[in-house]
Amino acid sequence: MGDADDMCPICRSSRYLNPDMKFLVNPECYHKMCESCVDRIFSVGPAPCPYVGCGKTLRKGRFKTQVFDDLKVEREVDVRQRIVKIFNRREDAFDTEAEYNDYLEEIEGLIFAIAQGSAAEREEAEQRVSEYEKLHKQEIIQNALQQKQDDVYAEEQAASDAEHQRRLRLLAIELQQQEAELAAQQEKETIEALEAGKTSEQAVREARERAQLRAEQLRQQFELELSRPRRAITRKGAAAAHASAARTPFTPFVGDRQMEYLFRQAEEYLDPTMERANEPAVRAGGFTAALAQQEALKLAFMSLEVDIQTEKATAIAV
C-alpha cells in the first residue's frame, strides 16, 4: 500500500500517527474518508461531501467500510443488493425456464445500467426500478417472507441430517462394544456350563447359539435405525429427483453388460507376473493382483465366440 492509501484526504492524518484509523465510504458518491472525519462532519446532521466539486448531501448512518479495493466492484455489489431485494420473484413463479431466464436477464440489464451506464441510462433504470417497486409492493414483501422460510427450512434439514449421522455413529460404537462383551460372556458361560457337568461340545454349542441370537438382535436394531426414513423434502421433491438423475454417473450401454462368465476367479493363483504386486509402491496406486487377473481372464474369454471367417464372409467385402 502506498502513502496515499494510508492517508485520509480530508484531515491529512495518516496511519503512521493513528494505527487504528479506519476508512469509510458512502454509497452516495463513494468518496473515501477516515472515521474521525465522518464523526466530525456528519454527527450534527446531513452535510455536503467535503470533496471539492462533489457536493452530494451525505448522512452519517449510511457510511460503511469498503469491502472491495476496486470502487467499481464495491458499487456494483451495492447496486445488486438493492435491486435483487426489489426484483425478488422466485423461480417457481414462472411457467417456463426461459421466462425465468428472461427475468434474470432483465435484472442484470438494470444493474449494469445503474452501476456502469451513462447518466441518462442510469436515470431511466432508476425510474423503472421505482415504478416496479410501486406496482409490486405486496408481492415483494410476500416473496421475501417465503425466501426467509425456505432458508430456515434448509437449515433445519441440514441439522437433522447431521443429528441422524451422529446417532448412527454412536449406535455403531455401542454395537461394537456389546459384541465384545458378548464374546466375553460367551466364554464365561462355557466355563460355567462345563463346571455344571455338561459335555464340552454341548456347552460350547449352547453358549454360541445364545450369543449369536443376541448379536442378531443388536444388529437388527442397528439396521432399523439405519433404514429409518429421515425427514424427506416433500416440497422440493420433484426438483431433488431431477437433480439426482443428473448426478447419476454415466454407464456404457446403461449398465447392460455381460454378468455371467465361463470362468470363476479363484482367490489366488500361481502367477509369476504378479511378483511385485505386494510391494507398497505398486499397491499405493490401487493396483491389486486380483484386478489384473480378472482383466486377463475376461480378455481370455472375450473373443472366444467371434467367428471372423463366417461373420465377415456375409458382411460387405472390404
Binding site: 470362468f263 479363484a266 487377473q293 482383466e295 486377463a296 481372464l297 480378455l299 481370455a300 473373443s303
Partner: peptide, 8 residues
C-alpha cells in the same frame, strides 16, 4: 493377454 488368462 488371453494366454495369461487361460494360464490362470
Amino acid at each position: 493377454r488371453p494366454l495369461h488368462g487361460f494360464f490362470l
